[in-house]
Design a protein around this nucleic acid. Structure first.
Lengths: 212, 212, 212, 212
DNA sequence: GATGAATGAGAATTCATTCAT
DNA sequence: GATGAATGAATTCTCATTCAT
């Protein structure tokens, strides 16, 4: 009956020196869910599939989250927290606006490149949340935008950023450039670029586009 | 229009002075499908919902397409054909590379802004195709990239486009900027930008970023 | 795979004498659902089971209702409407209060005995409704109670019904007697009582209990 | 109230000062299970919910019972034992049949009113038992009926209870009246009745209905 | 072309129960 | 006794698709 299961099959270790093997599924659940959702999108991702990859029955996954939507929310939240931490780091550098903006672009880009799947989900799947979760996640996005916007406005006031283009357009242009960097490494074949190659690229290009 | 279900349908015109109704239905199917898929994504869009909006029963939709995937493919194909037509128009102008690139950006942006939903689906839902349809749609995207790439390379050779950044990065940067313009008008409140405002913006910014 | 559809396949049945066999499932669905829910209770009744008895796949049942709860509501609603019609009939007789009450008891009892399953569900499963449906169903019950109550009060005022017991107790006692009649025929073995035997019984007993 | 509960069951506690904690948990399990099952019904009651209210994890509950069905059985059994004790008390009074019957009604009613939830479960959820447990619980119900029946028959023979109605109908009428008293206090608003008000009511009404 | 009942597969979720720790 | 992860089966509901009429 059942499909093997026999988790107690061990027989080798007599006492029990490692009491793991249980808990860390939580990480595994997040990891697999992120991988599948990034590839197929939230709606096309089935709990079954996540369970298969984690190696548990689908019902068991509900020990780790209460609903598929909550799982998505957690993924989004983690991403937000990490991106938020990056903002805080840049703040501490107390750079002048334009430099802060470029530093923010650089660090965000690095994070996006190192967390392509998370980043993709963040920009793509928020719409599947509902109610409070949707409200909150949208607020995260807005906060990110507000922040870039205020750096840009400050740069314009300081004269380091061009003023012949409306700050809202500059902001969206910049956000777009950052968001899109997650697609840059995609096409394999041909020599790969390093993360630094890519980030240097965006920073340079966006910098030249925005400077006054 | 709204509800009702075409009450004028039966009995009156014997021959066929209204071949248009058929056409209209067909257009209506595409239109509603685009609206819903842009909003919710392909996977979360149900045929039922499209049928409701069109005002037909679910089963009847299969007179207009053979499968949901084919419907998606048709949407994508239409978009591709229109974007392709734009490329052809730009070609006919026989401009020097950099100018051709900027003109291409401008016209693509206009199209993206006027067809936000289509554009969104194009960049977002291709992954849900399978087999031949997937292969073909991917090829469309690659062709678009190749074309921009060749303009950029030509511009670099002509000295009008910067050469201190790898052409592949310049290409992706440019594509990203175009793709992202579909999000620019989003936030309502505050004065709206016209399509021209926005296109002038991208062209200016990308131009300044790429010029040598 | 794709294509096909073969719309010209028809050819076999020329006229088609019997066009039934399809629609009347609706009655069948209600009937089987009532039987099972009366026996096991709403919560322990599975859609699967209903489908099995109706002879369709479970998914197909959703052509007949939108949710299990709606199915329950429909059963309850039908019962309510029938019981309501009985009240109206009694009203038309324009009897003095006590006689009206007894007539109401008699006719309700007949209905309860002839619709034991429905009646049982009505008194037992309302609690599984939610929101608006719950509110409405509760209101039905309250209306039934209010009506009996007003007949009893009128009887008290007319002197035909005892006044040494609070009318609310008389009302509940009467409702209880009616509700419980659905259990009277239960135990088989021994000679069965006819519906008339049983109704004569309740009317007589409740009448003697209430008369002044 | 209370009564029995068989506190002397297990081997007289040896030492252990806070053996009560255990007892309390056990009581708490019964108490919460009764509350939830009375409200939602057995089938709609989840072990999870009981555990939540008790303040233990789901799995831990299985120290207190072997299965959900056994839990139900225990609830039913407790009720039966208490009702049985009431019968015994009435027996000891050695009253003439009709008086014994009324006394039985009175005391049963008091118990039902003071144990509404238990009583409700008793009359409502027995059907969810299976096999031996079902057989036994049904026997309890039948014994209760048999007893009332024999009092009624004796009353008829003694001439104190009416003989113009078949004793089986009188029995069911009486049982119904007792069973239903658990619903009498329901509707709040307006002045509440005391337990005595209510019991006096049933006894009076049933008495008048049955007397010869 | 349109209808609408039916299919069959699969979705998310719940749940009683077990068991090693 | 208690924990909590896991099971395995079942449950409600959804959906793309078919097809006789």
């Amino acid at each position: 009956m059942g499909a093997s299961k026999t988790p107690s099959d061990r027989s080798t270790p007599p006492q029990s020196p490692r009491k793991q093997e249980r808990r860390n599924r939580d990480n595994s659940v997040m990891k697999e869910a992120i991988a599948i959702m990034a590839e197929k999108g939230y709606a096309a991702t089935s709990i079954q599939e996540v369970a298969d990859r984690v190696g548990v029955l689908k019902g068991s996954l509900y020990h780790y989250f209460n609903s598929k939507e909550e799982l998505l929310f957690r993924i989004l939240e983690e991403s937000y927290l990490q991106m938020n931490a990056i903002e805080a780091e840049v703040d501490e550098l107390e750079l002048p606006p334009f430099d802060a903006l470029l530093e923010q672009i650089r660090r965000s880009s690095v994070w996006f490149l190192q967390n392509q799947e998370r980043a993709h989900i963040f920009f793509t799947e928020t719409k599947h949340l509902t109610d409070d979760r949707l409200t909150q996640a949208r607020e995260w996005g807005r906060a990110f935008e507000r922040r870039l916007s205020s750096l840009i406005v400050a740069g314009q006031e300081a004269g380091s950023i061009r003023s012949d283009v409306d700050q809202r357009l500059l902001t969206r242009f910049t956000i777009g450039a950052i968001n899109n960097i997650r697609f840059w490494p995609s096409r394999p074949g041909g020599k790969q670029f390093t993360v630094d190659d890519l980030t240097d690229g965006v920073v340079l290009l966006v910098g030249d586009a925005l400077k006054s």
